[in-house]
């Protein structure tokens, strides 16, 4: 994975998929660009207007809990989100992130480490997140290599279309 640099948006604990993409929009479209117009509007009406390509979401515990709707991470893709950093990420949402090409990072960070609008530099090779504002860094444990190989091509669909199978990358 290449390095990544972007501005972050900070949210709290238990941000559910009902908040990431409210129910009334979940079947409105399949297109990330359309779904993106409603991303995070369960908590911040202005989020779709503020987010730009390359932005990063920071959550607390249990980010993406609740419904399995893949439309939720797709809406974030539509807003240009490339990475989600959270203290923990709900398991279906974690899989969905990888499958749609968002890098999920689970890390227990100290309170106040991130503030909305901070610029973060993420180096996947060394597993470090640097906050440009404070100069402080955190290290995270990389996701399993076979998930990296799915992410590198942009998600599960691209991975399978490239002719690869799980058997090629697991073990």
């Amino acid at each position: 994975m290449k390095e990544n640099s972007g501005r972050c948006w900070v949210f709290g604990d238990d941000i559910s998929t009902d908040t990431i993409l409210p129910s009334k929009w979940k079947t409105a479209s399949f297109e990330p660009s359309e779904l993106g117009k409603h991303a995070m509007t369960g908590i911040d009406e202005q989020f779709p207007n503020k987010a730009v390509d390359g932005d990063i979401i920071v959550g607390g515990l249990n980010f993406g809990c609740g419904s399995s709707r893949e439309q939720a991470p797709l809406a974030l893709v539509g807003c240009g989100i490339k990475v989600i950093i959270a203290k923990s990420i709900a398991r279906i949402f974690f899989r969905n992130c990888v499958n749609v090409g968002i890098y999920p990072i689970e890390i227990d960070y100290p309170e106040g480490f991130f503030m909305s609008s901070d610029r973060l530099d993420i180096d996947y090779a060394t597993g470090t997140i640097k906050n440009e504002r404070t100069g402080k860094t955190l290290t995270f444990r990389s996701i399993p290599p076979f998930l990296v190989s799915i992410l590198e091509v942009g998600g599960l669909k691209a991975f399978l279309l490239s002719g690869k199978r799980y058997e090629d990358v697991i073990r």
Binding site: E70, I92, R95, N99, F146, L156, L160, Y166, I170
Partner: peptide, 18 residues
């Protein structure tokens, strides 16, 4: 167990998942 659309589409195709 539950999964999202991409995972289930891949199961529809192959009958397998990780």
């Amino acid at each position: 167990t539950g999964m999202g659309s991409s995972d289930v589409a891949s199961i529809f195709l192959s009958g397998k998942t990780w």
